[in-house]
């Protein structure tokens, strides 16, 4: 396979779908801002793992980043539990600190770390095909396809196998605990999944836009269905659609691919927000108008 455009397109779709799946549960838990925090702090995990391994392509970098993601969640919840500050303020205190430490480390050791903050935050999908995966010296394709492919596979399997557990722990943590499904365990499992996905995706699309792909398709799907399983499928579908259309438009306009994918994600949401059959703005306004009319009629009859 030696068609960079096709490879980029494949990576775009895989990233979008892999983000959308754990994103569904993040959205249902109202934890999107935690994802935003995680996507920033994994940078510190990567930097620290790099200092240990001194190898930028080491798989330990993913491990370090995932651990840092979980640590972020833990620290935020620890602060929040003291009741000294609100949940939002806890997030706002923890992630800038960890992120600042990461940036300071990078700028102080910039000579030895070939990581720049730009590429972490912004990403560049167009460069992804340059990093090849070689097996016994044979080029078998862009590395990002395989890395993200494995992460997507794990996400799909996790969502299928632990569907019931994720569902009950999200909807009713007290019942989950009473029935022996530790909500804490499931919570941290999900957060690990989010961290790993973010690590895999940030090189391609940048950490800030990972949030767009984790939150956008699920909240769009949320407006379209009342079933959790359908919400998962629709989210994945919308994610893939955004990946394809976003990439094509980015090619046409010669602009940031990930940025364009985010813009398409936003436009698709806006469209659904207005015209969704049951929960859309248009239906809602029509319903309110009807209710008002009926109310007026009832009032008239009464008088």
């Amino acid at each position: 396979m030696n068609n960079p455009a096709l490879e980029i397109q494949i990576i775009a779709v895989i990233v979008a779908v892999a983000c959308a799946l754990p994103g569904v549960f993040l959205v249902l838990r109202g934890m999107a801002m935690m994802a935003d925090a995680i996507t920033h702090t994994i940078l510190l995990g990567i930097v620290m793992a790099f200092f240990v391994t001194e190898d930028l392509s080491s798989p330990y970098l993913i491990l370090g980043a995932a651990l840092m993601g979980v640590f972020t969640v833990w620290l935020t919840e620890l602060l929040h539990q003291t009741k000294l500050l609100g949940k939002d303020a806890s997030i706002g205190v923890v992630f800038p600190l960890l992120f600042s430490i990461a940036i300071i480390l990078i700028s102080r050791y910039a000579g030895s770390v070939h990581l720049d903050t730009d590429s972490v935050l912004l990403g560049e999908l167009a460069f992804a095909p340059f990093d090849r995966l070689l097996v016994f010296g044979v080029d078998i394709g862009a590395k990002a396809i395989y890395v993200m492919g494995i992460i997507l596979l794990i996400a799909v399997i996790a969502v299928i196998v632990f569907f019931k557990e994720l569902q009950i722990a999200t909807f009713d943590p007290a019942l989950a605990a009473a029935l022996g499904f530790s909500p804490v365990l499931i919570h941290y499992g999900l957060m690990t999944m989010v961290s790993v996905t973010a690590v895999g995706a940030f090189e391609a699309v940048g950490s800030i836009l990972v949030v767009a792909f984790m939150v956008g398709p699920p909240i769009t799907a949320y407006l379209l269905t009342n079933h959790l399983k359908k919400m998962l499928v629709i989210s994945a579908g919308i994610g893939a659609f955004n990946g394809i259309v976003g990439f094509q438009l980015a090619m046409l306009a010669d602009v940031s691919i990930a940025g364009m994918m985010a813009v398409v994600t936003g436009l698709v949401f806006l469209l659904v927000f207005i015209i969704a059959p049951e929960k859309g703005l248009y239906t809602g306004m029509k319903r309110r108008k009807m209710q008002k009319k009926e109310f007026e009629k009832a009032l008239k009859n009464l008088l």
Binding site: L209, G259, T265
Partner: peptide, 8 residues
Amino acid sequence: SIFFGLGL
């Protein structure tokens, strides 16, 4: 994230 994407 969407606005940031547009900015990019």
